[in-house]
Amino acid sequence: MLIIENVTKHFNGLPVVSDVSLTVPGNGFTVLIGPSGCGKSTLFDLLMGVLPMETGRIQWCRKAVPDLNRLAAYMQQSDLLLPWLGLADNARLPADIAGEPIKESGRRVQDLFDRLGLAGFENHLPSTVSGGMRQRCALARTLMFGRDIVLLDEPLSALDAITRRSLQKMLGLLQTDFNKTILMVTHDIEEALLLADELLVLTPPPMQIAARMGLEHPKPRRMEDLDLLAIKNRVLAMLQEKRSS
C-alpha cells in the first residue's frame, strides 16, 4: 500500500500543492484528474524527489521512505526515446544501466514486445514508427525497471482518440497482468473512468483533493454504461464549478 500524507509545495511564496493526502492500495489503480496547470505534474516531481517537499510523508508497505525514486517507474507525457537507438535498445536501457546481463534483459524485452504488439519492430528507430508505437515502447521501458509502483503522467495526451483507446487497454495490463500499484494523472475524464479503481478530483492551484470517488464497476468498462456517463457528468460539473469559483 502506498500512503501519501500532507504534501505541500510553494513556488515564489505561492502555494502550488496544498496538504495533499491519498492512499493507493497494493495493485490498485488511482487516477488524479484536474484542470491543466493545477499541479499534477508538480506532485509527481515531489513524490519522485525531483523537487523537495516542504511538508509531507510517504509510506510504502508500512515503511516510511523519503521519496519514490528507487521504488517507482515514472512514465511521462513524452516518450523520451533516444532517436539513435532502436526500439528494443530503448526499452532495455533500465536493465543496461542496472548491469543486467544482455541475454536476460533481451529475453524480458522480447516478452514485453510480444505482449504489447511491438514484435517485428525491435530494430526500428523511433522516427520510423507511429506515436502509438513509441508510447508502447515507453511503456515497455517503464516495465523494464521492475518496480512495484508505476507513476503515469498523462502518457497518452499527445495521441489521437483511436490510438488512445487502444493504449488505454495496454495501461490496464499494468494492473491485471503485471500486478503494479498505479498512480496516474490525466485531464481526460473518460480515460479516468475506464481505468480507475478510485478517482480523485483536483482543484485549480493551489492543488487540493476536492472529491474522492470509488469505482467498483467491473473491467473492461465501456462509456456506454449509463452509470459511468452519470459519473462523468458529475465530475465535469465539479471541474467547471472549481474553475469558475
Rank of each mutant, 00 (worst) to 15 (best):
Q110N: 11
F121M: 05
I231F: 04
L2N: 03
L93S: 02
L236F: 04
M48D: 10
R108K: 14
L43I: 10
Q208H: 04
D148A: 12
L193T: 06
R134Y: 02
E191S: 06
P35Q: 15
L118Y: 13
N90Q: 04
N69K: 13
L143G: 00
N233R: 06
M213P: 05
P155G: 03
Q135C: 08
P35Y: 15
E104R: 00
L183V: 11
Q59W: 14
T181M: 15
L68G: 07
E224K: 14
Q59K: 15
P204Y: 11
L152D: 02
L87Y: 11
K232C: 07
Q77E: 09
S18P: 00
L194R: 01
S21A: 07
L152H: 03
V109L: 01
A211I: 02
A119P: 01
L151G: 10
V50G: 09
M170D: 15
G26E: 08
L80I: 01
A119E: 08
M133L: 11
S36K: 07
L167H: 04
L118F: 11
S245R: 14
G214Q: 09
V201M: 09
G28M: 05
P155E: 07
S36R: 06
R222L: 07
T142H: 01
Q76N: 02
Q240I: 08
L193M: 00
Q240A: 03
L125N: 01
R136Y: 12
A210C: 05
K242M: 13
L51A: 05
E54D: 07
P218C: 06
R222F: 01
G132H: 10
M170W: 06
R62V: 01
I209R: 02
S41V: 10
S18Q: 12
G117T: 13
L87N: 06
V16E: 02
K180I: 08
L85I: 03
S130M: 04
K169H: 11
F44S: 09
I102L: 12
P94H: 13
D227W: 11
L156Q: 05
P25C: 14
I4M: 13
E100H: 01
K40Y: 04
A64I: 13
L125E: 03
T163E: 11
M133G: 11
L167Q: 01
A64K: 15
Y74F: 11
F121S: 06
I58A: 00
P83H: 04
T30D: 08
K103Y: 14
L32C: 06
Q175E: 15
A95F: 08
V201G: 05
L183P: 12
L116I: 06
E154V: 03
R108D: 12
S18N: 14
L68F: 03
M1F: 10
A140N: 03
T23C: 09
P35L: 15
I189G: 09
T128R: 14
L183C: 05
V20D: 12
L118C: 03
S157R: 02
L143N: 00
L81I: 11
A64C: 02
M207C: 05
R222M: 09
K242G: 03
E216F: 14
M238T: 11
V31E: 07
M48A: 08
L167I: 05
